[in-house]
């Protein structure tokens, strides 16, 4: 296959292309590698040249109850927020997939828009509402906001999976005597499971990445922008590097799951339905 392609492309261009890919990956990976590397460096501030290896930031992390507590909180909030967003998203995706009605495009746009609104504005807007309800500064509030930004991804991914479903199996279910609900539960849902699982994993990861915000919001500082502002002004502890590395590690595990479930949807969707 690749030789065929290369026949259409000059060797020079191919070499340049591979070189460019290499550079690109270098750019993409550099900060991550730096992050991981410096979490092991024996220095207060990451500098060059290398001063030495140490595990003390991880030790400090483990003894810092606050950081771990927040990590724990995230591990509760994120899967939950992802689950809520996925369930709501599944039903919405099903309705969008099956029905045609005036205003459908508008509704679809409404569902997608939350992911485009910058967290800055969302944070400001959300806190405006929450402070009136006296709900600000709580873990619960994080849960509520996160569901809003996770829903678009969930709806998009599940819609993608549903779009690949052979249209006649739902009709066949009705034809054989199933009413709408039975067909939804016994035929559509089983088909959608890979999409639902992938959406949940992806949503989990997005929410989990928001760990830093959660660390502040659920701590002493109540308002989001103030917390970030303070954080940026303060000294940064290398323990944060350690946290970042741990977050990255957990994400890699989730990533494998996403890769196994999601990419087949994105890339080979057509062929998997052919197997029918």
């Amino acid at each position: 296959m690749s030789t065929q392609r290369k026949q259409g492309i000059d060797l020079g261009l191919a070499i340049a292309g591979w070189g460019y890919l290499l550079l690109g990956f270098l750019f993409l990976m550099l900060p991550i590698v730096t992050l991981i590397a410096f979490s092991f460096e024996d220095a207060r501030f990451p500098t060059f040249p290398w001063t030495g290896w140490t595990m003390r930031w991880y030790q400090e992390l483990l003894s810092d109850g606050r950081l771990l507590q927040s990590l724990q909180r995230s591990l509760i909030v994120s899967p939950l927020a992802a689950a809520i967003a996925t369930v709501i998203g599944f039903f919405a995706a099903y309705a969008l997939n099956r029905f045609n009605f005036p205003g459908k495009n508008l509704l679809s746009t409404l569902f997608i828009v939350p992911i485009l609104v910058p967290p800055l504005i969302l944070g400001v807007a959300f806190l405006g509402l929450l402070s009136r309800l006296n709900l600000q500064g709580q873990v619960f509030s994080i849960l509520l906001t996160h569901v809003v930004i996770l829903m678009p991804t969930a709806i998009a991914l599940i819609s993608l999976r549903l779009a690949q479903m052979p249209k006649d199996i739902e009709e066949a279910a009705w034809n054989l005597g199933a009413n709408e609900w039975q067909a939804l539960y016994r035929v559509i849902l089983p088909w959608a499971i890979p999409g639902i699982a992938g959406a949940w994993l992806l949503a989990f990861t997005f929410s989990f990445d928001e760990f830093i915000i959660a660390w502040f919001v659920s701590g002493f500082q109540p308002t989001l922008p103030v917390s970030i502002y303070t954080f940026l002004g303060a000294n940064l502890s290398p323990s944060l590097n350690a946290i970042g590395t741990i977050v990255f590690g957990i994400s890699v595990v989730l990533l494998t799951g996403v890769e196994l479930l999601l990419l087949p949807l994105l890339l080979d969707g057509r062929s998997s339905s052919r197997e029918m």
């Binding site: 006649d168 199996i169 066949a172 009705w174 005597g177 088909w191 029918m276």
Partner: peptide
Amino acid sequence: LPVHRRNTPMVWQSFALFPH
């Protein structure tokens, strides 16, 4: 009568078998 109450089962061109 709605489709699920007619008992007029159909054999589809693509067979429409339930994959799961």
